[in-house]
């Protein structure tokens, strides 16, 4: 194939802005760590249990704060459009999975915080910083929130695996610039500027 020669020389690449990319990668590390800490801590009685719980709570609050900042940034700056030639089912999957990821980034810490509140457990960020209860103590509410936190965590992890697979699919197979839009650095520079569609993005400013 000699496609490369047919590319225009210009390299106008639409990417997420640096703040968006920084938030994405910082949160990727935090959220993956959070999910691993979560499944690890509930499966052990070793002293690491307390260490993990003591990271899980403040890290969850950090993710909540970053997710809210990220939502505002996203609403303000939008996202680069998906490639015009991306098949419709993939576009739909991209939109829906991004809505779900945003919802989970914000909901999971809140559900966890509420779950601890419903059990009357302290939400300790630091030995001297205890957060207030956000729901009243209630056994039935605790059970509901516990189930939500538990099952949504696995859903979240599954979505992240899909997101990872899709990102790599764009980077390695389609090579359509979608990965580069969020990539920490450009992996290659042969991206056709004309390929960006006009009205983009799952979450747009309204």
């Amino acid at each position: 194939m000699t496609n490369v020669q047919r590319l225009r020389p210009a390299r106008i690449i639409q990417r997420f802005n640096p703040l968006q990319r920084a938030l994405h990668w910082i949160m990727a590390v935090c959220i993956l760590a959070m999910l691993f800490i979560g499944v690890g801590m509930v499966s052990t009685v070793a002293s690491e249990y307390l260490t993990l719980v003591n990271i899980h709570k403040p890290l969850g609050i950090l993710i909540l704060i970053l997710a809210l900042i990220r939502l505002v940034v996203r609403l303000r700056y939008g996202a680069p459009p998906l490639p015009l030639d991306l098949p419709e089912p993939m576009k739909l999957a991209a939109y829906l999975s991004h809505y779900a990821l945003y919802a989970l980034m914000i909901a999971m810490p809140l559900i966890g915080w509420a779950m601890l509140s419903a059990a009357d457990y302290p939400v300790t960020l630091w030995p001297s910083v205890w957060l207030p209860q956000i729901v009243p103590q209630s056994a039935s509410l605790h059970t509901l929130l516990w189930n939500a936190h538990f099952y949504l965590a696995f859903l979240f992890f599954a979505l992240i695996l899909m997101h990872l697979a899709a990102g790599l699919f764009h980077a390695l197979i389609r090579r359509d610039g979608v990965f580069d839009a969020m990539g920490p650095a450009l992996t290659h520079d042969e991206i056709a500027p004309g390929e960006w569609r006009e009205p983009p993005a799952p979450i747009r400013s309204r």
């Binding site: 194939m1 496609n3 490369v4 047919r6 590319l7 490639p83 015009l84 030639d85 790599l168 390695l172 197979i173 389609r174 090579r175 359509d176 290659h188 042969e190 991206i191 056709a192 004309g194 390929e195």
Partner: peptide
Amino acid sequence: PEALRPAPRNTIGSLAL
């Protein structure tokens, strides 16, 4: 648009990766 993009070097290999 496919023509405007560099072809994957090895789709099977990439999928496996």
